[in-house]
Amino acid sequence: MSVVVADRCSKWYGHVLGISDVSWTLKGGIVGLLGPNGAGKSTLIKMMAGLLRPSRGSLTVFGGSPFDDVDVRRRIGYAPEHEKTWDMLTALELVEVMAELAGVANARKAAKDALAQMGMTDAMNRRVKGFSKGMRQRTKLATAIAHDPEFLLLDEPLTGVDPVARIDIVERIKKLGEAGKTIIVSSHVLYEIEALTSDIVVIYRGQVLAEGNVYEIRKLIDQHPHRIRVECDQPRTIAAALATADHVARIVFERGAVLIETRDPDRCYDQLAQAVLEGGVAVSALSSPDNNLGAVFDYLTGDRR
């Protein structure tokens, strides 16, 4: 069964558009939620968390409405971007209170376990007030998992976190995914998403623009033929060998390299290998500079009018 099903779902705040006519299914796993500011990401997250009701259409989580159904909400863990915490509580107290509010039977134990899972056992009896950003993010995550939900919504879980803590928190999120939880991670920092997953959903102008595996999406972007960059000692030899191929859209020379844009990367790589061996070309590097999340996002949101 799918975790989230949105069916022609729209949300308006007066004249302000949240999301518009979104039909989308989330089956499971760790999925990155991306989109420019104001595109509708937070609206979608809040609707999945049960904080907003659709203006039109429907959005169901585990088959029920998160806004109306408490049982559905209990299976969801939400870690919002901004949270005003009660700074004078200790981490343990804070998570415990939130767990109680979520209806957990043995809240203290659940809070302890959740904090342990987030690596906060040593710090759990300290007041939140003195925490670094990394510790706050971890506490927030602990709050979201204390009631053992199956579905996690994490909004910018890594903002302000230093590189050491970042690696740790990414690992912990991955572990949660491996344990079978469905996780949506929303972030503007594409490398964070890349570290976690290759499955994405792109929200643009209130609608779902693209979804699925990044590399598969890349293949679908025709207006931008695949770029293949060859750093070598004879760029013109390579260029000459490929210039007559019909799948090649453009060849650009750089210093010490040649950049080929092709509509059929499969054939291109084969022909490239052949040209290298036949021409005795010394290749120092071979790469596809735009086969990554950053480029895909750029292409998807860049050209649209």
Binding site: D266, V276, S284, S287
Partner: peptide
């Protein structure tokens, strides 16, 4: 690096990146 290209051809494997 030529060795990599040669082995790839011999093994019938398509190379997609070297760095």
């Amino acid at each position: 690096n030529k060795l990599v290209f040669q082995c790839a051809r011999d093994a019938g494997v398509q190379l997609r990146g070297i760095e």
